[in-house]
């Protein structure tokens, strides 16, 4: 029945590598001032959490609305035991990785 078999998903969206990320840089500069040394590659993105009946729709959702593929990479994280053939796998070339939530 509709709504009974939803899977919890998290979509992690971050600036693409190589694109200036002034937010990440500002955070990276702030940490040593607080005594946290040895921090590198800080990037600030956003998290979209959602329950979906059909996890295969997550990728088109990301491409169309949740992320802007020109400037952002996204990572789809599915809850453990999700009925998705790609869960735990990697899709090369699209900048998308699926993995189980710990």
């Amino acid at each position: 029945m509709a709504g009974q078999n939803r899977v919890r998903a998290r979509v992690l969206i971050r600036p693409k590598a190589g694109i200036l990320d002034p937010q990440g840089e500002a955070v990276q500069r702030a940490l040593p001032a607080l005594g946290f040394e040895g921090v590198a590659n800080v990037h600030v993105g956003r998290l979209v959490e959602l329950d979906v009946e059909d996890p295969s729709q997550l990728e088109p959702m990301c491409e169309k609305l949740l992320a802007n593929p020109l400037v952002e990479d996204y990572e789809i994280v599915l809850r453990e035991g999700a009925q998705d053939a790609d869960a735990g796998g990697t899709r090369q070339g699209l900048g998308i990785r699926y993995r189980d939530i710990q």
Binding site: P15, I19, L20, P22, Q23, A26, N68, L70, V71
Partner: peptide, 10 residues
């Protein structure tokens, strides 16, 4: 074409 990103000066 393109996109608009946060100002470099934040």
């Amino acid at each position: 074409p393109g996109a608009l990103l946060p100002n470099a000066n934040l």
